[in-house]
Design a protein around this nucleic acid. Structure first.
Lengths: 109, 109
DNA sequence: ACTAACGGTAAGCTAATACTTACCAAATAG
DNA sequence: CTATTTGGTAAGTATTAGCTTACCGTTAGT
């Protein structure tokens, strides 16, 4: 078996697709049933189902079954985790940049 | 012409690919020449060049030509912009969640 | 029980995109 | 001047992944 993929990796992949971002945007406002999510989007309802699966697998959204309706909503914990991860991600990138700038400084004095 | 794509959209797309993330990871530590970036990666050097173009177009990295060497490094301004964008992105998602929780609360009292 | 609404999954097609090889230009070293 | 290093671009291939249609199971309403 190939090694497991982390949640942050999955989240990056999930948000890499514009249609999935559009879906996530919709759910950011309020929870919605699948039909309502598909409404207005330029793709079919089954396509939306497939995207929802990917977003759910990345822990960015969660499901809430109500009768025949599957209500999707943003996943608080998953989003907090991703946000946390990204904070470090950017911090490290900018940290390396800062370090570099300081070395530059040193070379010029 | 089709409408322009924003930098944040480009950044999402750019980081959606695992190889590009690996490249960005390498640059997060320190600036590197193209050969050094390709070193260890499971793809050819031209493939790396193509990925670098995408990352550069998304303003996540910048180039610094030195002789025959093209030194790539993380782009401070682009990263700050993306970070700023994402902060709002998550805030809004969590805000909607919070609002929902409060309404739930109200229904149960 | 019948019907309608909701939505997940499978199979297959298609389009996007990641990758390779081949080639070329620019800069540096000898 | 020649040889080497570096790396970008073009063309073509191949794999990925998003999309569609078709189908089926589940729940709710009449």
């Amino acid at each position: 078996m190939g090694h497991a993929i982390s949640n942050s990796e999955k989240a990056f992949n999930a948000l890499g697709d514009p249609t999935r971002r559009a879906i996530f945007e919709k759910l950011r406002t309020s929870p919605l049933a699948v039909v309502d999510i598909a409404e207005g989007l330029p793709v079919s309802r089954p396509a939306v189902s497939q995207h929802l699966k990917v977003l759910r697998d990345a822990k960015l959204i969660s499901i809430n079954q109500q009768g025949t309706k599957n209500i999707y909503q943003v996943d608080r914990d998953g989003i907090l985790a991703m946000r946390n991860y990204l904070d470090k991600f950017w911090d490290e990138a900018l940290g390396a940049f800062k370090l570099l700038a300081e070395q530059e400084e040193k070379n010029h004095e």
